[in-house]
């Protein structure tokens, strides 16, 4: 069910029409729209946004760690539609224990490296990712540096 504050946002209404259970929340803040999506629906919603709503570019995928709050992780997608000249932020909330979400590489190939980065630095697993290994940290590195419980100086001396 779409929250009342998203009713004036055409894209959110379209997503709601596509899948009534996909949207779990959202807001408009400082002129930017954020739509929260149920993690299980992310791939189908992204496919809909790309092919039906002209969001042909995935600008970036990143995450925010809300430690110690729960659900701890937010996976954040920024989409851009060249045709509509419009930005959209999608957000999925994941629990702190065993955070898993499906990869959107099948929709945009550019998600490949961004999701690898999120896995590398936050330890969020992406299902069906074609190449799920670290990208920035060295192979065999322990821990995920951008988590809030990872010390700024690292564990090694």
């Amino acid at each position: 069910m779409i929250p009342d504050n998203l009713r004036e946002h055409a894209v959110a209404v379209a997503v709601d029409g596509f899948d009534g259970e996909a949207i779990t929340g959202g807001k408009q803040d400082r002129g930017e729209w954020t739509v929260e999506i149920a993690p299980g629906k992310i791939v189908s919603v992204c496919g809909f946004l790309k092919y039906d709503q002209q969001f042909i570019r995935l600008s970036t995928v990143t995450a925010v760690d809300r430690y110690p709050a729960e659900p701890r992780f937010e996976v954040v997608y920024h989409l851009y539609s060249i045709e509509r000249n419009e930005w959209l932020r999608l957000k999925c909330r994941l629990p702190g224990v065993d955070p898993v979400i499906e990869s959107v590489t099948s929709v945009w190939r550019s998600a490949n490296w961004y999701e690898r980065e999120v896995f590398d630095l936050f330890g969020i697993q992406f299902i069906n990712h074609p190449n799920p290994r670290r990208i920035l940290m060295p192979e065999g590195w322990e821990g995920h540096p951008l988590r809030k419980d990872y010390p700024i100086t690292g564990y090694r001396v």
């Binding site: 042909i56 570019r57 600008s59 060249i82 945009w108 550019s110 961004y114």
Partner: peptide
């Protein structure tokens, strides 16, 4: 190709 460019970021 332009399509690949947009898809690959």
């Amino acid at each position: 190709s332009l399509e690949d460019m947009l898809d690959l970021g």
